[in-house]
């Protein structure tokens, strides 16, 4: 595992006096795949949003390679180039083609040449099996295709860390697989990823480390095998049990 890339110390976040994150300490190393799980409303998506500076924080510190990430700070756009984020609802830009969606930030933010940015975009699209969709508009794509484009859009900025916020939660079941396969592929390439997900089997397969968050605190963390097979805390055990069903028929 590489050096420390992202460091979160004592992160506190609240909405209208209600504490959502209550002193989170977390370090992510370069090349690590970290999966965050927890019940709805536990603060896991908020944590990702704080890491990307989308939310003001009320305590603690987040640093990426030693540089502080703070909502509203001047160097935030520069820092964000190093952090790729993929949202649950894809959020492609509807007025731009797939190719323009991907190359907008490389061209306007990183000032790369059109030829070079498009070449890379097409290469990445090919890798996720969507090269033939480059000239289409987002509305012509299925949910799974949109999400793969959103991943490529983030990748094309060469981020140091990628954040995935429940990226399969809005997809039809048969499209989940195609998106998860892309993410498995990225993990294999040794990318640093922080993934919030409800897909437990996927989490177990992709993670180097799992953290379980409940009520704004990290309750448990560990290797995926240990965590999913024999969670140490009762709360985590309870949460994982939710996903097993007993027959209603005797």
């Amino acid at each position: 595992m590489g050096e420390e890339l992202l460091k979160i110390e004592g992160l506190v976040k609240s909405y209208d006096g209600h504490t959502v994150l209550d002193g989170i300490d977390l370090t992510v190393h370069s090349g690590e795949v970290l999966v965050i799980i927890g019940p709805s409303g536990c603060g896991k998506s908020t944590l990702l949003r704080c890491i990307n500076g989308l939310e003001p924080i009320h305590g603690g510190k987040i640093t990426l390679s030693g540089e502080e990430i703070r909502n509203g700070s001047k160097n935030l756009p520069t820092l964000r180039q190093k952090i790729g984020m993929v949202f649950q609802s894809y959020e492609l830009f509807p007025h731009l083609t797939v190719l323009d969606n991907i190359t907008l930030a490389p061209l306007k933010v990183q000032k790369r040449t059109k030829a070079e940015a498009e070449e890379e975009a097409l290469k990445l699209l090919e890798r996720v099996g969507l090269k033939d969709k480059a000239k289409q508009y987002p509305r012509q794509l299925s949910g799974g295709q949109k999400q793969r484009v959103a991943i490529v859009r983030a990748l094309c900025m060469h981020p140091e860390v990628m954040l995935f916020d429940e990226v399969t939660a809005a997809l039809d079941p048969e499209m989940v697989r195609e998106v998860l396969d892309v993410m498995l592929d990225l993990a294999k390439q040794g990318r640093t990823m922080i993934i919030v997900t409800h897909e437990m089997q996927f989490a177990e397969a992709v993670a180097d480390r799992v953290i379980f968050i409940d009520k704004g605190n990290i309750i448990e963390e560990g290797k995926p095998k240990e965590f999913f097979n024999s969670p140490k805390t009762e709360r985590a055990a309870q949460f994982l049990n939710i996903f097993e069903f007993e027959s209603v028929k005797d």
Binding site: L54, P77, Q81, F87, E91, A105, A154
Partner: peptide, 18 residues
């Protein structure tokens, strides 16, 4: 225009003017 359009644009490193 959904709030997420602003966010996904800013998450890519675009300034708010961009």
């Amino acid at each position: 225009i959904p709030k997420h359009q602003y966010e996904s644009s800013e998450a890519l490193g675009l300034t708010s003017a961009q």
